[in-house]
């Protein structure tokens, strides 16, 4: 995807399945929003292919928009309109809309349902935009940073709604800066940097580690040689998961030093996977 002489996105690939959440993560300017707006048919890709519902979104815009709900970062509402009014108006665009009252209730907008858009807080605006994305009962939901600027309670409401929509079989693509957010809701993750995919796959596979990771309450760097196969990094001792005896050796070694183990795991956090991928790309 080019803008004049600048290539914004040149190698981003993902495939979305119904009943799953795909999260696109990446640094600012990585091409996340451009990928979504291209998917929505805002611009024709200069090369490659984009399909939504098996259709070219530029050539089949009416069919694509009827089946897709979208919440864009800079999408807005007429300033004097209230959430109740704009949800009702937007419902009139669809053949089988969802109940506006139900959405207002689900998104905890009841207390501001009759407040003009211009007087809503950032979080209330985000929840209203999410309601507008959902009112047409879409098969695919595209959400660009849905929890940005939302308070913790509002985030819980949005996350819960995303889980419910996923359970209803909707395919959901969302972008976020927050890896914790991605880890909570994603089935698939696509890490984008400099306009291309640098890592993609199922969350469970990306965060699976071949190592055993032992967290302790003591700095291990002054404790001498670790057991065979082990590596020390601050309070963490890491060793090969395929070595059945490593865990026994490691816990015995820590016990001999009277160091407490706080956790034992065999998976990375998404954050560590992400940092490794982005640092490797830069």
């Amino acid at each position: 995807m080019d803008f004049g002489s600048t290539t914004a996105v040149h190698d981003v690939s993902f495939e979305l399945r119904f009943g799953e959440v795909l999260t696109i993560v990446g640094p600012n300017g990585a091409g996340k929003t451009t990928s979504l707006t291209t998917l929505l048919g805002f611009r024709r890709p200069t090369a490659g292919m984009v399909e939504l519902h098996g259709l070219n979104p530029v050539a089949h815009l009416p069919q694509v928009t009827a089946l897709t709900g979208a919440m864009l970062q800079d999408g807005g509402v007429w300033a004097p309109m209230t959430p109740a009014q704009v949800i009702s108006l937007t419902a009139s665009y669809y053949r089988h809309p969802r109940s506006g009252a139900d959405l207002i209730d689900r998104l905890a907008l009841g207390s501001v349902a009759n407040t003009p858009w211009r007087r809503l807080s950032g979080g209330e605006k985000q929840r209203t935009l999410l309601a507008l994305a959902l009112v047409g009962q879409p098969r695919v939901l595209i959400l660009d940073e849905p929890t940005s600027g939302v308070d913790p309670e509002g985030r819980d409401v949005i996350r819960e709604l995303i889980r419910e929509e996923k359970a209803l079989g909707r395919a959901i693509v969302l972008t976020t800066h927050e890896l914790d957010e991605a880890e909570r809701v994603a089935d698939q993750v696509c890490v984008v940097s400099h306009g291309r995919t640098i890592l993609a796959g199922r969350l469970s596979e990306l965060t699976r580690s071949t190592d055993v990771i032992i967290q302790t309450d003591h700095d291990l760097s002054t404790c001498g040689q670790p057991p065979v196969g082990g590596h020390i990094n601050g309070r963490t001792l890491r060793g090969p998961g395929h070595d059945a005896d490593f865990l026994a050796r490691a816990t015995a070694w820590l016990a001999s030093l009277q160091i407490n183990v706080t956790s034992i795991s065999s998976s990375h956090s998404l954050e560590s996977v992400y940092r490794q991928a982005v640092d490797g790309d830069s």
Partner: peptide, 9 residues
């Protein structure tokens, strides 16, 4: 507003 409307039918 127009950008949002563009994503609706």
């Amino acid at each position: 507003v127009l950008k949002r409307l563009r994503t609706t039918p």
